[in-house]
């Protein structure tokens, strides 16, 4: 396996099957590096959802389970409870997390379950062909909003902010972007450390690109990402200031 790939990458699954230019591949590349650097491949359990995240089912040479739609959080909560020394990751898309799976995420955060959730936000249900998701901003045209998302349906859901409002002071809540992979690396590391060092919940949303369903070329994909970050602000939204036992 060439040195460009993270060590925890599964060689048999190269090349991966994400679309050309897919943001997932950038997030997974960064996550792989963090897992390598933290040396946690052996104890990591990687849960993925239905949607494009499922294409990561054989991405890593790490225990991986593809769950049902919106159910990755409870599966990883159950696993972590059964195996407290593990690093339990839940890796899902915005459709899975913020619509069908939102109930579970809220309660997982409320109970401070010690799992780390990474939500890849490309503002649409990509695998099913680009329908609008709770993250789609008003006016945006998708398969189920052919005239642009109606204002009456509300602005895009600011989920890390929502989860922060639940008041769990021990949680690490942040938003990153594939526009800044150096920053993303740091955020992923912090998110995982909040589980391993503080036995607490972490939530990291990552703004991402979807050239296939956005029908954008490389340059325009990153331009749209830039404009997304004007509404969905990146940075740390909430973190605990002291180490918790």
């Amino acid at each position: 396996m060439d040195k460009l790939e993270p060590r925890c990458r599964k060689e048999a699954a190269i090349p991966h099957l994400f679309c050309p230019g897919c943001g997932h591949a950038l997030v997974l590349k960064t996550l792989g590096r963090v897992i390598d650097d933290m040396k946690i491949a052996r104890q990591t359990a990687f849960g993925i959802d239905i949607g494009c995240s499922l294409l990561a089912w054989n991405f890593f040479d790490i225990n991986t389970i593809q769950t049902h739609h919106g159910r990755t959080a409870p599966v990883m909560v159950g696993y972590k409870m059964a195996e407290p020394k593990s690093v339990a990751l839940a890796y899902v898309g915005d459709g899975a997390a913020y619509a069908i799976g939102l109930q579970s995420i809220i309660h997982t955060a409320l109970r401070n379950e010690p799992i780390t959730m990474i939500v890849v936000n490309n503002e649409n249900y990509a695998m099913t062909g680009g329908q609008m998701s709770p993250e789609t901003e008003t006016g945006v045209i998708t398969q189920t909003s052919p005239r642009g998302k109606d204002m009456n349906l509300g602005a895009g859901l600011k989920s890390p902010e929502l989860i922060s409002s639940l008041g769990n002071e021990k949680a690490f809540i942040a938003r990153g972007s594939v526009a800044n992979l150096v920053e993303l690396n740091k955020l992923i590391k912090k998110a995982i450390e909040n589980q391993t060092k503080n036995n607490s919940f972490s939530f990291l949303e990552v703004l991402s690109i979807c050239p296939t369903n956005w029908r954008t070329n490389a340059k325009d994909s990153f331009s749209r990402l830039e404009s997304m970050s004007k509404y969905y602000k990146t940075g740390i939204i909430s973190e605990t200031t002291k180490e918790v036992n």
Binding site: G47, T67, R71, P74, G78, K80, A82, I106
Partner: peptide, 20 residues
């Protein structure tokens, strides 16, 4: 865990058994 609903309860079971 008293979960948020039975959906979560069942999926927690699926997760826990992975760990034996």
């Amino acid at each position: 865990i008293q979960t948020e609903d039975e959906i979560a309860a069942g999926f927690c079971v699926n997760g826990a058994v992975l760990a034996g």
